[in-house]
Structure formats: structure tokens, C-alpha cells
Simulated assay, not measured.
Amino acid sequence: MYYYISIHSDDYTQKIKSEVLEHYLLSKFGFTKVGHLKFIKEINGETVEIMGIPANPNGGYAFNTLDGIEEVNLIEIDLPRYIDGNLEHSISEIAISIAKEFSWMIDDNHGLDD
């Protein structure tokens, strides 16, 4: 089972401004900002976390802090440990909406509902 969902541009070259991602997640989905490029929301009793990340062209990343990062090319949705069909559907809708909004793709579909 995957523990996160990755959303990114086709070749990781397209980036979005951190404030654009922040505005989208807060206004569209009601996430709460808990740190720079880190957002959480309780869905069906479980905490879902989304993080914006700067990645290299292969999708790899390493960082000590996201402070000061102004653009990202990867968004990860951490999946809660316990997930049922309703929660999976809710997270799928968020991931699909993010991918459509930024014209990015969801990595390998990660078992999401279609």
C-alpha cells in the first residue's frame, strides 16, 4: 500500500508559486496551514496532510526546511494509517482536483478511485 500520493508536472519542470498552492488549498478545500508549504485537514475523523515540495527532475528531494521555498513542482498527500472507502474517495477527489487545477498528473494513480 502507498502511504502518500504524489502530484507533479509531467517532467517536474513546471512549478507553481508557494502562495498559489497555499491559497488554493485554504480557499478550495479548507485546509489549515501548519507550516510553510504544510497543510492539514480532518476528513472523516482522520488527519490528512498535504505538503508542497521542490523536487529534482527525477522527483527526488532532500531538504532540512521548507522555509524560504517560493516554488514547488511536487505535491504530496500523506495518507492516514486507517483509510476506508469514504475517506479514500474524499482524498481522491482532492488529488484529482489539484492535478486538474495545475495541469499536473497523479503518479501511477496510487490506487485512487477513478
Rank of each mutant, 00 (worst) to 15 (best):
Y2C: 09
Y3T: 13
I5K: 00
K15P: 01
I16S: 03
K17Y: 07
S18V: 07
S18Y: 04
S18L: 02
E22V: 04
E22F: 03
H23R: 14
Y24D: 02
Y24M: 03
L25I: 03
L25F: 08
L26G: 01
L26H: 02
G30L: 08
G30M: 08
K33V: 04
G35D: 15
L37E: 01
K38V: 07
I40R: 05
K41Y: 06
I43K: 04
N44I: 02
G45F: 15
T47M: 09
V48S: 04
E49L: 12
M51I: 10
M51S: 13
I53G: 04
P54F: 06
A55R: 00
A55D: 01
N56V: 08
P57M: 12
N58I: 09
G59A: 11
G60D: 13
N64P: 00
T65M: 14
T65G: 08
T65N: 14
L66V: 14
I69W: 03
I69V: 15
E71I: 01
L74V: 05
I75T: 01
E76G: 01
I77R: 00
I77S: 00
D78T: 09
Y82H: 13
I83A: 02
D84F: 05
N86M: 10
L87W: 01
I91M: 04
S92V: 10
E93V: 14
E93N: 13
I94M: 08
A99N: 04
S103T: 13
W104V: 02
M105H: 11
I106Y: 05
D107G: 06
D108W: 04
D108R: 09
H110G: 02
L112Y: 06
D113Y: 15
D113F: 14
D114I: 15
